[in-house]
Design a protein around this nucleic acid. Structure first.
Lengths: 145, 145
DNA sequence: CATATTTAAGATAAAATAGTATTAAATCTT
DNA sequence: AAGATTTAATACTATTTTATCTTAAATATG
C-alpha cells in the first residue's frame, strides 16, 4: 500500500527533521539534511522548491544559507504538505483509476472509498508538523535508516 | 492518492466484468474483456496469470477458451485479489517507506497509519466479488470509460 | 491440419527517480 | 571593491521502475 511518492516522502521526512532537530527560524542546509537522512540532494532540492513556492518553507542562498520553516510548525499540516507534493487532487482519486468517477457515474467501490478518503483527510488536516515533531522527540522516533 | 497499481486495477475491473456480465463457470476470452474495458490485452494476460496461479481464476486454451472464476464469487474477497496483485506485504507498508518500521522502531506516523491500514484490511476482507457484482447490476455502475 | 486461444519470454516505451553540471545569489576575505 | 567561497536554483542526462507491445510457443477445437 504505497500511498505517497518518493518525492513526498522525502519532503515530509526532511520537514520532520527540521522541526524536530533544529531551533525554529534557523536556516538548515539542504546538503546536511540530504546526508543526514540519506536522500538524493538534488531530488530533495526539487521537492523543497515546491514547498518554498507554496510558502511552507523559505530559502536563503549563500554561506549559512539553507531552508527554514516559513510558518510556525503548529500551522503546517500534513495535508498541506501532501497536497503540495502529490497534487491538489490527492483526496479525489478513484480507487480504480477511472477518470470521471463521482456521484453521477460512480465506480463499484466509490461509496466505500469516498468514506475512507474523507477520514484520512480529516486526520491529515489536523496533524501538524508540531504534533509530529513533539512525538518524535518524546519517543525518540526515527526518520531514516 | 493512488493506492493500487495499474495491473491490480485492471485485474479487479476485469474480475468485476466477469462476475457482473457473465454466467458463472463460462469461459470468457481475455481478448473480449480487454476490448470491452479498453485494457491492454497483453498486460491483462500477465495479470490473469497471477490470478490463475493463485487459484482465483482458471483458464482454458483453444477455441472457446478463456478464463473463468475458479471459486464462487462469494468466496473471493477484495483482499485476496489485492494481495495477489500487489504483494502479500500490501497492508504492512510504512507510510514513509522506511524499511524496518514497526512497533520496535516506529516512524513518526506509525501509530496513526497502522490503524488506518487495519480498517482498510477489514473492509477489503469482507467485500466479496459477489457483493460488488450485485451492486454493479443493481445500480448499473460502470467499470470502464 | 488449420484456426483460435492462453501462456510465456523478450523488446520497447513511458514515467518516476537519481545524478551531473552549470548558473545565480549571498557572504566572506583580502 | 575584487575575488573566492558557500549555497540554492535550474537545466540536462542517466538510471530504474512500471507499463505496453511483439513475437513465439503450447493447447484445444473441429
Amino acid at each position: 500500500m504505497k500511498v505517497l511518492s518518493k518525492g513526498c516522502i522525502y519532503g515530509l521526512r526532511a520537514l520532520l527533521y527540521i522541526v524536530s532537530e533544529k531551533p525554529p527560524a534557523e536556516y538548515v542546509s539542504i546538503r546536511e539534511i540530504s546526508e543526514e537522512l540519506d536522500i538524493s540532494f538534488h531530488f530533495l532540492t526539487k521537492t523543497f522548491q515546491a514547498l518554498t513556492q507554496k510558502g511552507i518553507l523559505r530559502s536563503y542562498r549563500g554561506p549559512n544559507g539553507g531552508v527554514a520553516l516559513a510558518k510556525a510548525p503548529e500551522e503546517v499540516f500534513l495535508a498541506d504538505i501532501v497536497l503540495t507534493l502529490e497534487g491538489e487532487d490527492f483526496f479525489n482519486k478513484c480507487l480504480l483509476g477511472l477518470a470521471g468517477c463521482g456521484e453521477a457515474a460512480p465506480c463499484p467501490v466509490h461509496d466505500f472509498w469516498i468514506g475512507h478518503k474523507a477520514e484520512l483527510r480529516v486526520e491529515f488536516e489536523r496533524t501538524s508538523l508540531a504534533d509530529m515533531g513533539k512525538k518524535i522527540n518524546r519517543k525518540k522516533l526515527r526518520l531514516g535508516p
